[in-house]
Design a protein around this nucleic acid. Structure first.
Lengths: 249, 249
DNA sequence: CGCTGTGTTGACAGGTCTCAATATAAGTGG
DNA sequence: CCACTTATATTGAGACCTGTCAACACAGCG
């Protein structure tokens, strides 16, 4: 497979050679960014979207009162920065939490995809909807679940996403979030996160290692978290056939 | 203005006559649905998306333990059901909470928009991103704000959306959510919602009427809620010019 | 006129936060 | 390589917010 993050697009359509080439031409060269560096600041103008090729990143908002909310954890293969296409100014800061490599696409190139490769555009649209569902699941989770369940749901969410994009072991995963990151994601304090992490561990749901977490029994954890199982669509007919019927007729 | 919900699309591009006609041809006839009726059930197959022409609706998820989470309140002009394009089965139930009229669009017609009217597709994409931002704001709000602030943020969110799509009075709005709805939205109990509603009222932030809420001082409420002010993009160049450069060349 | 949906109020229990101290690991500069 | 600083994780005690349970008021509606 190529090193382009096309796999994320290819989850929903099978790109033709032309589509892949177009995408390849439009996107910029991969760029390395060190840990803790900002990829994009809250308030910057909106002119690029980013594909995360490798490493972990977060988008967060700093509030007037000094608190920080992490609104999304970005994993390899993800699309970053698309939501701000709806804004004049970036809403969030994008920061690398490990060394990362990214590739960027100008908003102009983004428009080109819509006119030249409608099937890719449809795939991007579906990805956006998938993200909406993820956010909705998080709202569901934040709403009324205990901190313990929320943490379990977060772990499983990252686990599932890592399983999709890389060939990793079945029962463990990399982990690059500090407890402060987790706290800012779940709306808890880092103090409490520490407690519930230990609790989850003492109950046998997880085993913690350096930069990694193992799951002795994923299914048990899943039942405990009460997170919905999502059955993502793959290559839906309406998207796959875009342009076909017309050009034939 | 037409009775089609094109205004929502027209927030981001100025549709040509052809684009408007295409959309008009693809969408179904308006349909009326009584209060409390389900527009779409959790688990149904995915073959339509809906435009809410009039009335209020909610999408919610019923959890195994009997709790209900409202993931979105739909107001007139909104697009409903797009997120499930990423799924094989509908993730949520769509229910009218007032009498509503809707117009539907098949997923096939949705594909046609991507091939025939890329600018409309781009507008739909931007709307999706806008929704993502709204969800992110809600996550921010749910995460660490007090119940009082969350309620204030919800009220302002609905207020701002109503201001966008209809010409209503500056200092008041219609309100069709019961306190149970609010509780299911904010992740609180209806008991507590009752308390904080009274508290918000006794502090002078709101005045409650039948099916309506008035805001004596919107800006004070906004400061209290601490919700971010969003500056939505309008007719961005990358979307407006889609297809132009190409056809000329 | 009774019924169901909705809103209000009170007392108590429980989860999470705050504040504070400490331990451990990870960098950094000499 | 060591000393120092910083980041991260852990633990405890008490306060506060919100949930639970229960009872009741009120309205709309058949």
């Amino acid at each position: 497979m190529d090193r382009v993050p096309l796999h994320r697009l290819a989850e929903f359509i099978d790109p033709t050679a032309e589509e892949a080439a177009l995408f390849e031409n439009l996107r910029g060269y991969p760029r390395s960014i060190p840990r803790r560096a900002a990829i994009r600041q809250q308030g910057d103008p909106v002119d690029q979207i980013y594909f995360l090729l490798d490493g972990w990143a977060i988008s967060f908002v700093d509030l007037p009162d000094g608190q920080r909310r992490i609104v999304k954890v970005h994993l390899p293969g993800g699309v970053m920065g698309a939501p701000r296409l709806a804004l004049n100014q970036a809403a969030e800061t994008l920061m690398a939490i490990t060394p990362v490599t990214i590739s960027s696409l100008s908003v102009h190139g983004f428009g080109t995809i819509f006119s030249e490769a409608p099937r890719l555009a449809a795939a991007l649209f579906i990805i956006a909807q998938q993200e909406r569902l993820n956010l909705k699941d998080r709202i569901t989770s934040l709403g009324r679940q205990s901190a313990l369940q929320r943490l379990a749901a977060l772990l499983l969410h990252v686990y599932d996403r890592l399983q999709l994009t890389s060939d990793v072991d079945q029962d463990k995963m990399d982990w690059h979030l500090t407890q402060q990151h987790v706290a800012d994601s779940l709306g808890l304090t880092s103090v409490h996160v520490s407690r519930i992490f230990r609790q989850l561990e003492s109950q046998g749901f997880i085993v913690r290692r350096k930069h990694g977490i193992a799951f002795p029994d994923v299914e048990a954890l899943r039942r405990f978290a009460g997170a919905p199982e999502r059955e993502w669509v793959r290559c839906p007919a309406w998207a796959a056939n875009i342009g076909r019927g017309k050009r034939a007729a």
